[in-house]
Design a binder for these strands. Sequence first.
RNA 1: GGCGCGGUAGCCAAGUGGUAAGGCCGAGGACUGCAAAUCCUUUAUCGGCGGUUCGAUUCCGCCCCGCGCCUCCA
Length: 471
Amino acid sequence: MAVELYDTLTRTVRTLSAEDGTAFRMYCCGPTVYKPSHIGHFRTFLVQDVLRRVLELDGQEVYHVRNITDVDDKTIRDSIAAGEDLRSFTSRWTEAFQEECAALNMLVPHQEPRATDHIDEQIRLIERLVEKGLAYAANDGSVYFKVAAFAEYGKLANLDPDQLRTQAQTSGGERNLADEYDRDTVADFALWKARKPEDGDNYWPSPWGEGRPGWHIECSAMSMKYLGETFDLHGGGVDLCFPHHENEIAQSEGATEKPFCRHWFHSAHLMVEGRKMSKSLDNFHTVQDVLDRGYNATELRYQLISAHYRQQLNFTWHGMEATRSGLTKLHRQTQSLLDTLKLGPEGLSGDPRDEPGVWGVFEPAWEALRHDLNLPACLGELFRALNSNPERRDDVHGLRKILFALGFELDLDGDRSHAPEIPETVRTLAEARWAAKQEKDFARADALRDEIHASGWSVLDRKDGYDLVKT
RNA sequence: GGCGCGGUAGCCAAGUGGUAAGGCCGAGGACUGCAAAUCCUUUAUCGGCGGUUCGAUUCCGCCCCGCGCCUCCA
């Protein structure tokens, strides 16, 4: 048994393994905390969450680190605008992020290091680079990585470093804005940024004067601190491929002369109604936006993991409706399986990671996950298995594992306990209608149903009675 | 211009060198006084043109269309 995943660096599907033979060490680039994360961010984090669940179901011990970037232009700008110090400002947004992760039923990383808690580590890493001639201090007190000194620069994003060095314009023909500091070539990137007036109180002492770390260095410093100089997997959205991860490789491998990480895991972007979503455009939906529309977190989770991770996912409200229907079917069929086996909701409780690898009819769904985390295929096989009317005890083990991998917590048999109180007037009307129906006075029965409907309730007849449901 | 991804039923979306999973919606049927729910059945030849092959949606070439990245965006 093994889990296979596409690796961005080698452009091949490779088997994942723990280099040290014990724990699989994965680092995921986390959010920059200055406003609510949008559902596109959560797509990436959810896909990473599923990967971790699959690895753990496969019997591997996973050590999962996801950073919090709490110092950059935007966090500084917005905290000052809010009249709040950076630490408390970013702490608020970090907590908001963590609450939404919990709502989406994501496993909590083993470490969630913050950039500002690791300034020393970052400075030491920069010092190593300066000592090795891979970085230089500019006149303004900033320190830059010397891209020309790192021969393999561009290997992850498959870009030509010579071209990058001389590129003064972006594809859109705009001036390359990256050139606002004093450096040798446009491709060189800042490891340390000299203090500027607009930084307010947000600066730290360093061998090169007061300032703050650049964008990429915190991930190199923190991943290596918690996972070692070579670790197993590094993940993020495709947009991080360049420059962020390319720069991380340059910094890290430049300093250590060891491979930085063994596997690169990038997930494609979420689109919204056919358009790209990003913090710089104003078209993003937050988790709260989706909840406000009346969808629950499980429905959102399902939608966000339902496409293959290397494929763009187009989020639409129409799609959310389809997802809701699909989840309803999943509930129903799962309940049906439990009923067949005379098991209560507890039949699916407990931690399936501790159970033996028995899959029953759900084996194909598991195979789909193991092979490059093929979630659409997994969902297809899940439904196919349920449609086959499984009735063996072993099948429940398989279903429990698949539901764990997907992170779905189904509210089985829970509808009645969560149902709102039925008003006495409605109950009376419903009793009267049932009596009328028994006497085959259908005109009166229908009239009473209309009355009940006007009170906000629907009557659903069964063979031997009826249910009242709030509309 | 450079690098990369995709075009499969009304919608979403897997997949394979030998005639295409699954979900949603729709349709037909069963059930029901009706309605809802539920159950059953049912809906494609895979962007276009060539090539390789006994055979291609799947491999190769060209073309058309859409999308992403190319310096601080997951």
